[in-house]
Design a binder for these strands. Structure first.
Lengths: 250, 250
DNA sequence: TCAAAAGTGTTACTGCTACACCCATGT
DNA sequence: ACATGGGTGTAGCAGTAACACTTTTGA
């Protein structure tokens, strides 16, 4: 059997689904949209849609992200600093159980997007209702309960959250949750929200400022968090943290 | 726009491609098959094939693995020890560039398999020719040269090798390259081959035997490597290594 | 003056590297 | 006897955790 016989192959629909994460009010939140028609009508789901005929997977994910949130995707090799409302986007995993969509065979290439807290939650999106919800809202649900996400989106969300939690350990990705300029304290609160832990501010400060290429000072300061003025930083060029940021045990 | 309108979607072919890695003669090797027809006729490619109509992605990958190598897939939550010729299998990434196959739109869900060195390289496989080749053979090739892999398989192989290299740092996956019973020295030679480095045998021994759940002694010994008899071990239940095995800098 | 958050110094401990050294076998 | 690989002991160092302490603002 040829592995690439162009005749006689089973037809699939291919979609992209998005796990869009942000940190709001000290909580890790995910973007969810309400389904307008069956199946799972009225239930919450992850944003997503069909991949177009001439479109790369990453391009489809980026297009859906813009449609839902107005967020542009970070230039991966950009020396240009972030404009302030752009997001990190990466492929997460692909879900293809034959029964995951009751109507037809759909393979979904899930993507993970990390975004700063947006002033207007879903500006520029479609007319359908959308919301930011704490990830616990959906992760706490077991299986197919009415509060759970549609399809296998609960599993996809769980995988995305786990990826984000582990990736900020050894990369500088946590800065994707921050605005273009941020303080060390704001970055620490991102780690605390994503991991659901409390970190020592003193040791955290030493760690992130002592890692070459992680943060570059802009020269400015701010008191928007109260207390003594804090230096403002931008994300530096380094993407890998070595040694990694350690997540507390329990 | 509904994200799941069952009418009017562009049809895709969905395949699985396999990066099958093993360690032979102190080298990290990948399984390659020779293409019998155009495009890329006569060139080497990764094994793979269409996902069937009623088949999960992981099942398709496992089926292809059996067809090509005779390897069974490890039970993920098995308390049963390995039978000796079973492999680790995990999803790697999905490749969907519109032009990756010149004939039609094909989305390939690549999987990574890690296998012990097989006595009979491709027993039970298809009739077409297959071989184990050092990964450098294909990774060294630039772009579309005649020695390079077909399609985007060079990129897929590179991604799979990188995943294996990083994953043995913080997991016990390196044991998937070993037979069911192995010595500490044999495990060390796996790390050395995958990373292309030399490790200190004394420190390595302390590290792996001192990590709870990584290795469990079988009680037996062997002298198949020469020298003093070495204890035999099985892979333990632990999957995550904490602290991780450190890959030397340069 | 006080609360709040930023930032520095110091000590104790963990885990790694490097290397000296001994052990048990085959030839 | 000696080569080969297996395995233990130990000193020095890097990086972290825990926490006392100072700094600079707003109320």
């Amino acid at each position: 059997m040829s592995p690439y016989d162009p005749s006689a192959f089973p037809p699939f629909a291919v979609t992209v689904d998005l796990v869009v994460l942000t940190v709001r009010r000290h909580e890790l939140c995910a973007l969810a949209v309400r389904r307008g028609e069956p199946p799972f009508q009225g239930r919450w789901a992850l944003p997503g849609g069909f991949v177009r005929d001439d479109e790369d997977l990453a391009a489809a994910a980026a297009r859906e992200l813009v449609e839902e949130t107005g967020l542009q995707v970070h230039d991966t090799d950009a020396s240009v600093p972030s404009a302030g409302n752009d997001a990190h986007l990466e492929q997460l995993a692909t879900y293809g159980d034959p029964k995951r969509d009751p109507r037809m065979r759909v393979v979904s290439v899930a993507h993970l997007a990390l975004a700063p807290d947006l002033p207007a939650p879903t500006a520029g999106g479609d007319a359908h209702s959308a919301r930011w919800a704490a990830v616990e809202t959906f992760l706490g649900q077991t299986g197919d309960g009415a509060g759970a996400l549609a399809f296998d989106h609960g599993q996809i969300l769980a995988d995305g959250v786990e990826r984000a939690r582990s990736k900020i350990e050894y990369s500088s990705l946590a800065t994707a949750f921050c605005p273009s300029e941020f303080t060390v304290g704001e970055l620490r609160r991102v780690y605390e929200a994503v991991w659901g832990v409390v970190l020592d501010p003193r040791n955290f400060h030493r760690k992130v400022t002592g890692t070459p290429g992680f943060l570059v000072p802009t020269g400015g300061t701010t008191t928007r968090q109260g207390g003594r003025p804090a230096q403002l930083f931008r994300a530096g060029g380094a993407t890998l943290l070595n040694p990694p940021m350690l997540r507390p045990e329990v």
